[in-house]
Design a protein around this nucleic acid. Structure first.
Length: 376
RNA sequence: GGGGAGAUACCAAAGUGGCCAACUGGGGCGGACUGUAACUCCGCUGACUUUCGUCUUCGUAGGUUCGAAUCCUGCUCUCCCCA
């Protein structure tokens, strides 16, 4: 997997690059739609590719392992064949579930034992098993198994948690070396920097991670309850330490503003459920601000969903109709909102890339950040 | 014509002397959501008031009582059954 840095913006750490995988090129900075269970909820692969312009999507190890199970995915010939997406795929390791499903799992040195949220059965996830599962899924980018440290963790916990993540990382690396890709395309392991909101821990974590030759590096454990300022501060601590010639992935982030702030600080890759989940719940992101389409004020607004939008749905449907669909609980409402939001997120990073290449990123970003946060 | 049941807030529906401005659902209005246990969750929903609180409500008009959505009487209306 090759990463080529095309340009770094002036007065900013923002970078434009190209990440080449066996399933195609990714122009960075990039936003990666989340498809936890193998599908980006409510969105056809055709729309992802042609309308939204997605270049890479996510899958999730924990969820796909539980259902349909790795044997089915293997029989299908890997996730690409199974879900029909022939572009690059990145799988999260289940490290986020160690955080989000904290109530139904037990942590040990060995790994994380989950009680399935589906049927209650017990499943031990270890760094080794998680690599094996991701091999079987066939992800182009495999994430290391980590503990996503909660945003409110105190120093002692964050330190202990980081140490565990680091030991797990070594085991992941070993398991990668001991195993091979199953479907004829390469797979790259991205280590993850943890360390809570503590600069000293983040710095140490970043240094540790750079001792492991990788095709890319991730920053995790942010946007998990800590103040936004802490998130930005941690990025500023970590990014200068990470190798410049490798992509940096800020996991789970975020709002459109978060993404621009991340790009400004040198992040190349983002993913977040926000465009899809919030879309399903009636929130639309636009370049002029945020719309809650359920609000009464849109009831008789027969203008396009987003006159400036890039998606088919933006021009084809009206706000009043979309509001009607969302309020009525019609499936199509969730689909339109998700498609719009994803198209907007992909537009945002694409435009950021243009601005970086044109050396106008910083000024553009300053203006956008104000507009994007507005409530319409 | 005879017999029976019932009228509660936007709708449905609890409540059958004080703990009732009134359970609960729906609807309405608003909010939350960041590597997805989420088409989910949380508020508010008589009026005035920032809170405390005050005032007007349970078909309608009276009455009993310290006190009524709850008991009594008249009236109006609705529904069901038998002819």
């Amino acid at each position: 997997m090759d990463f080529t840095l095309k340009h770094t913006a002036s007065h900013s750490e923002a970078r434009a690059g190209i990440l080449e995988t066996d399933h195609g090129k990714i122009e960075t900075p990039i936003f990666m739609p989340v498809g936890t269970a193998g599908s980006v909820k409510g969105i056809h692969v055709k729309d992802l590719k042609e309308d939204i312009g997605a270049q890479i999507i996510l899958g999730n190890t924990y969820h796909l392992y539980l259902r349909p199970g790795t044997d089915i995915i293997e029989q299908a010939g890997g996730l690409h064949k199974f879900n029909g997406w022939n572009g690059p795929i990145l799988t999260d390791s289940g490290g986020y579930q160690v955080f989000s499903l904290g109530d139904i799992r037990k942590l040990s040195e060995e790994g994380a034992k989950f009680q399935s949220h589906i049927d209650g059965s017990s499943h031990l996830f270890t760094p080794e098993s998680v690599i094996d599962v991701q091999r079987k899924i066939g992800a182009d980018i495999i994430m290391a198994f980590d503990e996503c440290t909660p945003g409110d963790a105190d120093f002692d916990y964050a330190k202990k948690s980081l140490a565990l993540t680091q030991r797990w990382l070594d085991r992941c690396v070993n398991q990668m070396v001991k195993t091979i890709p199953l479907y004829g395309h390469n797979q790259s392991l991205f280590p993850i920097v943890q360390g809570g909101v503590y600069p000293a821990l983040r710095e140490q974590a970043a240094r540790h991670v750079t001792t492991i030759p990788s095709d890319g590096y991730a920053i995790g454990g942010l946007s998990v309850g800590e103040p936004e300022a802490d998130m930005y501060a941690m990025i500023e601590v970590v990014n200068p330490i990470l190798p410049k010639d490798k992509p940096r992935y800020l996991m789970g982030v975020g709002t459109p503003v978060n993404i621009l702030e991340g790009i400004d600080r040198g992040i190349d890759m983002f993913d977040c459920v926000m465009p899809t989940r919030n879309g399903r719940n009636g929130m639309l992101f636009t370049k002029n601000g945020i719309i809650n389409i359920r609000n009464k004020k849109w009831a008789d607004d027969f203008t396009p969903v987003d006159p400036d939008g890039t998606s088919y749905v933006d021009r084809h449907y009206t706000k009043a109709f979309l509001r009607h669909l969302v309020i009525s609980g019609e499936m199509l409402g969730a689909q339109i909102a998700s498609q719009h939001n994803l198209a907007f997120y992909l537009w945002l990073v694409k435009e950021a890339r243009h601005q970086i290449l044109a050396d106008t990123f910083k000024e553009w970003k300053q203006e956008m950040v104000i507009k994007l946060a507005q409530r319409l």
